[in-house]
């Protein structure tokens, strides 16, 4: 369960000495129950990514609290937040963000390696996962040897491999054609149903938002809840 209260953030832009404050997030609240798919839609520049970065602990907000199962993320130090992420969060990015020097297998393995999981267990888990997300036969491929859809599957597998309770996805289908987009959405839905993973998905695409149980709309740094469908 993720709960955001009174979250505000502004960026300081411009030359040194002549900076101006640009408010991006204004006193917003958000809730994501366990096992829900939450979508955040909004126009470009409305502050969606900034919100996600704060939820994930990449960025410290000016004000407000981010509670994950009751623990306040904003009260933690950098190292603590990193350890928390490794333990509880998975990430899917619009431009995949795979490590170019690692093979598909090694990319998926990376979070487990960071966690210090023994190699034999890593091998078993990654192989199992590659099978279930439809990545058979590309084990030794490097990211630049994969299609966009395949790369995003690797990205999703990497987010899943530590079996985190929450996965954040910023425009997960933004770089894919509509057919591949549908494949990925189906994958997300099935994972949500199978493992009860909470997804927080950012998108500007209503079709993507449609798979969510809880939908938010972002407008000029303000968040409005736009409808709830109960978990099936």
């Amino acid at each position: 369960m993720i709960e955001v209260k009174g979250l505000s953030h502004s960026f300081r832009v411009g030359k040194k000495g002549k900076e101006t404050e640009v408010p991006v997030l204004k006193e917003l609240a958000l809730k994501a129950r366990d096992g829900e798919i939450v979508s955040i839609v909004g126009r470009s520049g409305s502050g969606k990514s900034t919100l996600l970065h704060i939820l994930a602990g990449f960025l410290q907000p000016d004000a407000g609290r981010v509670l994950v199962d009751g623990t306040d993320l904003t009260a933690m130090g950098e190292a603590q937040r990193a350890a928390f992420r490794l333990d509880r969060f998975g990430f899917v990015f619009q431009n995949f963000q795979l490590m170019p020097g690692l093979t598909a297998f090694e990319n998926i393995e990376l979070p487990l390696t960071l966690k210090g999981v023994p190699a034999s267990e890593r091998k078993r888990k990654v192989e199992e996962l590659m099978e279930s997300v439809g990545l058979t036969g590309i084990r030794g491929h490097y990211p630049n040897e994969l299609s966009g859809g395949q790369q995003q599957r690797v990205g999703i597998a990497r987010a899943l491999v530590t079996e985190p309770p929450v996965i954040f996805a910023d425009e997960p289908t933004g770089s894919l054609d509509s057919e591949t987009e549908q494949d990925i959405l189906n994958l997300i839905l099935s994972l949500n149903r199978k493992y009860g993973i909470t997804f927080v998905i950012i998108t500007h695409d209503d079709e993507v938002a449609a798979i969510a149980n809880r939908q938010y709309r972002m407008h000029d740094g303000e968040l409005a809840e736009g409808g709830i469908r109960h978990v099936v």
Binding site: A56, F58, A79, A82, L86, D87, M99, P100, L110, L114
Partner: peptide, 16 residues
Amino acid sequence: TREIGVMKALGAGPKL
């Protein structure tokens, strides 16, 4: 830089 960012995003601490 980008790879370091990814590592940090996935949960690699500054010490590591």
